[in-house]
């Protein structure tokens, strides 16, 4: 056993030697896939791991070396907080869902009700992924849960839904409005009725096991600050507090 541990230490040494030592510490941020474009603009030197929020939460529960967890819902970070894996989450931005179709629109879908036609290849995210849960909520709000029978694939994060529609492989998919903007020209965006919109709130927290809490806290402060919020807004995210009607 001792020799195995020694070998692990040796491989660790080799890897850290190869990576080079830096004097200032940059936070490791585990963030929802929808933040792929915006977050590096807020902190270019931070290290990011973008994936489905549910996958990231599962990795943090298994001891992943995350400093910050930014989720596309509040349920996952609240769950981590309850189990003492992270600090109390705060809402840092909001988003909205849209329906997208490939630019060539092979199935001629012009509204969400067209999804009822049989034979349509609809791609959504899995139930455990925040956007997957929101998608089911939208369909429920519109009394369209029946279109779930047209689902041909359940993806593990929102960007995989986006990729499959942008490629023309799928006829339609549900993503955040911020995602559809990243592939302008490849997809057509169809807005959803306001009454169908779920309350998409993004929660952020500092991971308890993080070795460098100061850097993690600084990142969260940046995201909540005026500059961070301005960058998020530029990428189409909504203000973190819903404006009063």
């Amino acid at each position: 056993m001792r020799v195995v541990v020694a070998a692990l230490l040796l491989s660790g040494l080799l890897v850290s030697g190869a990576a080079g030592q830096s004097t200032t510490y940059h936070p490791t941020v585990y963030a929802a896939a929808s933040l792929t474009d915006a977050f590096p603009k807020i902190a270019p030197r931070a290290r990011f791991s973008f994936a489905g929020s549910d996958t990231l939460a599962a990795q943090i529960r298994q001891g992943a070396p995350a400093g910050v967890f930014a989720s596309a819902n509040t349920r996952l970070p609240l769950g981590l907080y309850r189990d003492h894996f992270c600090s109390k989450p705060v809402v840092f931005t909001r988003n909205a869902l849209v329906l997208i179709v490939p630019a060539s629109n092979p199935a001629r879908i012009h509204g969400v009700y067209d999804l009822r036609r049989s034979g349509i290849k609809l791609v959504i995210a899995a139930q455990s992924v925040p956007v997957g849960a929101y998608t089911r909520q939208v369909l429920k709000n519109l009394k369209l849960s029946g279109v779930l029978r047209n689902v041909v694939s359940q993806e593990s994060d929102v960007r995989e839904v986006l990729a499959k529609v942008a490629l023309g492989q799928a006829d339609a998919g549900f993503v955040y409005s911020t995602d559809s903007r990243t592939v302008a020209g490849k997809v057509k965006t169809i807005r959803l009725p306001a009454r169908a919109q779920p309350n998409v709130q993004y929660g952020i927290c500092v991971v308890s096991a993080s070795g460098h809490k100061a850097a993690a806290h600084a990142f969260v402060k940046n995201v909540l600050g005026a500059r961070g919020q301005r960058i998020l807004r530029r990428y189409g995210f909504l203000p973190r507090v819903e404006p009063k009607h």
Binding site: V123, A126, V151, V152, S153, Q154, E155, S156, K164
Partner: peptide, 8 residues
Amino acid sequence: AGSLQGVT
């Protein structure tokens, strides 16, 4: 092929 329970 994507991922759908019972199909792919």
